[in-house]
């Protein structure tokens, strides 16, 4: 009994400590991000790795999701004779939910895990200690460009995902199932609102970018300097980032209704 309570106590203490450490880590990264040196060169390299190399997976996934939305939406709407609303169904679900969330999940799997593994390996091979010896702050030089890069690429990738999805829905709805092309785009344009839907979508993408970048770099930075530690950090990044993205998605939707 006492052991169980002690376990609960130690778990709680550890969790609170973890959260506090993560908060301090985020503050440090944020401070380094807004104070010179800017390390633009490193940020550009990260945008290449996190963003450009994710283009293919984002576009293919967006296309596939849009196509399946078109197919499912068409079959459902056909029962009510409302297939002219297909554009609205595809557009609204992509812009409001699927675009930001699926992009964040894909980027977590593709780039977040890689970031955590990279930083974790730097920890394990004592490269970060080497940087410290040369009095280069590893948070400023290694961590911040990756976190900033993640925040920068997430809205761009989300927008690309949505555009690919809209095109995929058009492909299936218009080219395959015979919905009128103009009807598709009119229903899309009249239902998606710039202020509510699109800005909400970008808000979500930005929040997810911060979340994924933060969790991936923190897990990598604090990983145990062993091969098992690096693999644990990578796994934890994918799990924690994915779950946080989904939870925050609900919170943002519930609080701001986007």
């Amino acid at each position: 009994m006492v052991a169980a309570i002690r376990l609960l106590g130690s778990t709680t203490t550890r969790m609170v400590g973890d959260l506090g450490a993560m908060g301090l880590f985020l503050l440090e990264v944020a401070r380094d991000a807004v104070t010179p040196p800017w390390r633009l060169r490193n940020v550009v390299d990260e945008v290449y790795k996190l963003g450009f190399l994710s283009l293919l997976i984002i576009c293919i996934s967006g296309l596939a999701v849009g196509m399946v939305l078109g197919l499912q939406g068409y079959n459902t709407l056909e029962r009510f004779g409302a297939t002219q609303s297909l554009g609205a169904v595809v557009g609204l679900s992509l812009v409001r939910e699927l675009g930001p969330v699926l992009t964040a999940l894909l980027v977590t799997g593709r780039a977040g895990s890689a970031t955590a593994a990279e930083i974790g390996t730097m920890v394990a091979t004592e490269q970060l200690d080497g940087l410290r010896m040369m009095s280069v702050d590893p948070i400023d030089y290694v961590v911040t460009p990756r976190a900033v890069g993640m925040v920068l690429v997430m809205p761009l990738l989300t927008a690309l995902f949505i555009v690919c999805g809209i095109f995929g829905g058009w492909l299936v709805g218009v080219k395959l199932l015979g919905v009128d092309s103009g009807t598709y785009f009119t229903s899309l344009e009249s239902s998606v609102d710039l202020r509510d839907d699109l800005s909400g979508s970008l808000l979500k993408a930005g929040v997810f970018g911060v979340l994924v970048g933060w969790i991936a770099t923190y897990r990598g930075y604090t990983s145990a300097p062993t091969s098992a530690g690096v693999s644990a950090a990578t796994t934890a990044t994918v799990v924690v980032a994915s779950v946080s993205v989904l939870i925050f998605d609900y919170l943002i939707t519930a609080l701001w209704g986007v």
């Binding site: 963003g51 809205p155 927008a159 344009e189 710039l194 839907d197 970008l202």
Partner: peptide
């Protein structure tokens, strides 16, 4: 070469954003 690719990526992303806000969002 990498700078060029990053530039292409940013242009694509911005283009998608512009398309969404101008054509779809009705700006």
């Amino acid at each position: 070469g990498r700078d060029l690719l990053v530039g292409v990526f940013v242009m694509l992303g911005m283009g998608a954003l512009a398309y969404l806000s101008l054509a779809v969002g009705g700006l």
